[in-house]
Measured scan of single mutants.
Amino acid sequence: MGFKLLSKLLVYLTASIMAIASPLAFSVDSSGEYPTVSEIPVGEVRLYQIADGVWSHIATQSFDGAVYPSNGLIVRDGDELLLIDTAWGAKNTAALLAEIEKQIGLPVTRAVSTHFHDDRVGGVDVLRAAGVATYASPSTRRLAEVEGNEIPTHSLEGLSSSGDAVRFGPVELFYPGAAHSTDNLIVYVPSASVLYGGCAIYELSRTSAGNVADADLAEWPTSIERIQQHYPEAQFVIPGHGLPGGLDLLKHTTNVVKAHTNRSVVE
Rank of each mutant, 00 (worst) to 15 (best):
A19D: 15
G105P: 07
S30W: 07
E225Q: 13
P138D: 08
A51S: 08
I74L: 07
L96E: 00
F26Y: 13
I84G: 02
C199I: 02
T261A: 11
W88N: 00
K102D: 13
H115G: 00
P138V: 08
G53I: 08
H252T: 02
Y196W: 03
N149V: 10
L106N: 08
E44L: 08
L156E: 03
V146W: 11
V194I: 08
V45D: 04
T222K: 12
S22T: 12
Y48P: 05
V132I: 11
F116T: 02
V189L: 07
N71P: 00
R128G: 10
I227F: 05
A179L: 02
V124I: 08
V237K: 02
T114Y: 02
F168D: 00
E150R: 00
L249E: 02
D164I: 08
L143I: 14
L81D: 00
L159W: 03
G105N: 09
T140G: 03
P107W: 06
G246I: 05
V146D: 14
P41D: 14
Y135N: 02
E80N: 09
A129L: 10
Y175G: 00
E150C: 00
L217C: 01
N92P: 04
T134C: 01
Y231I: 03
F174W: 02
F26T: 11
S223A: 10
L156W: 02
E39N: 15
P35F: 08
G158Q: 09
S139C: 04
T153E: 13
L195I: 07
V126I: 07
T254H: 14
D85P: 00
D77I: 01
R76K: 07
S223V: 09
S27R: 14
K251N: 10
R226D: 01
R110Y: 15
V146L: 13
C199G: 01
A136N: 03
P23Y: 10
S181I: 00
L6R: 08
E147A: 13
L13D: 05
R206G: 15
S30A: 15
I74P: 01
S56V: 15
Y135D: 03
E203R: 00
P35S: 14
D52A: 11
G65W: 06
P170V: 11
A178P: 13
D164T: 11
Y48D: 14
D118F: 04
A218R: 12
V257G: 01
I151P: 03
D164N: 14
A200Y: 05
T14G: 02
D52W: 08
G123S: 04
V265A: 12
I17M: 09
L204D: 14
A218C: 06
R76G: 07
A200V: 07
